[in-house]
Every structure is written in structure tokens, then in C-alpha cells.
Amino acid sequence: MSIWEYANPKKFMGWTRPVLPWLWALAVACIVTALVWGFFFTPDDYKQGSTVKIIYIHVPSAMIAINAWFMMLITSLVWIVRRHHVSVLAAKAAAPVGAAMTVIALFTGAVWGEPMWGTWWAWDPRLTSFLVLFLFYLGYMALWAAIEDADTAADLTSVLCLVGSVFAVLSRYAAIFWNQGLHQGSSVFRAGRPDSVAEVFYLPLMLSIAGFILLFLALVLMRTRTEIRLRRASALEARMRSA
């Protein structure tokens, strides 16, 4: 049996139904544990004080914001190559989640930046890239919303996602070239470097990231199920009208 069979809408509905509640429970458990642990049972940073604790929301949401687009790129490619409806509907379902995560990352970043840098906003490459990423999400969702025919919308948004990905990467490097910025380097994957996150913060952060990944999966599966139901409803309706 091929892995693609799980992409059949009916099969997909079947296997996601029992999985979803577990995903939700795990996601909530991880996030709640991580936040409680992070907020109340870790010491304040010697330089940044308690504001450092925003990291438990800021970093995971930022990671999801980028990887949601990456997931959309892959599922769009799968749609273009193999024409699996579920694949492109998953991309459609992930876009608002990714956009929301981008907003959360930008908002928590602003809240963190105000006491640290003395400003809510700076045209730093990382911040700028996230703003541009948010615009890409908006464009992608607007194109889905504007086109009536579902397959046309799927094709066109997939093409946009591919081209947008190239330009998103290009914008990222253009922004670095344009302004060197205030933002510190990546917080997580630089073990052993003096400016990366200290051990006490590391474990709750990892747990929070895991929780956000599970939350993302749960939201995307749930929204994909909704999209599948909508497509099924419109498919049935179209046949009733022509009958």
C-alpha cells in the first residue's frame, strides 16, 4: 500500500478523526506545562530581567510562521505534481495559521523589543522579513478567496506559492544586505555558543516549541477536515443542480 493512499479525502477523514483529540490534548499539555515552567520556575535573565520569558511564545511562533510557509510550498508542489486534493487543501488550511503565527511573532517581538531596544519596531532584517512574509500570506489567502472554481484556485495559488517562496528567500537576503539590524542571531540552534540560550531556559523552550508544532498540526488537520467537508458539500450540490 502506498503512502499516497492516506491522501484520499475519505481515508484522510478516517484517520484524522481519532488522531485529532490526542493531538489537541498533547499540544495543550505541552504548551501549558512549558509556559508555567518557563514563567514561574526559571530564574530571570541577569541582563534582560523577566522580559526574557516572552521567548517561550516568541521563538516557537516565529518558527511555525516560517515552517508553515515551507509546508505550504511542499504541499503545493505535491498538488502540482500528483494532483492530490488533500495536499492543496492542507496548504490552504495552513495559510491562516501561518499568518496568525507571524502576527504573534511580530507582536511578541514588539513587546519584547520595547524594553530591550527602546523601540517597538525597527527596520531590522529579521523583522522586515517577517513583515514581508505576512504580506505573502495575505496575498496567498486573498487569491484563494477571489477565485470561485476550486481547481483553478488550487492551481493558481500553488503557482503563486512557488514563485512567492523564491521571492521570499530573495527578500530575506535583500533585507540583510539593506540593513544589518538589531535583532540577535537565532536563539536556539547554536549550542555551545556564548550568546545562545542558557540551559535553564532551554528545556521549557524546547517543550514549548514541541507544543506549538503539535498545535500547528492540530489546527491544520482540523481546518483541512473543514475544507474537505466544504468541497464535498459543493461537489454534491453541483451534481444535484445538474441532475
Binding site: L135, G164, A175, F177
Partner: peptide, 14 residues
């Protein structure tokens, strides 16, 4: 405009 403007970013910057 919404689709095209974000794509204009690199050209504009450089």
C-alpha cells in the same frame, strides 16, 4: 497589487 507588491521588495531594495 496585493500579490505583486511583496514580490517587488528585492528589486526596490537593490
Amino acid at each position: 497589487s496585493l500579490l505583486v507588491l511583496p514580490l517587488y521588495v528585492p528589486t526596490l531594495i537593490f
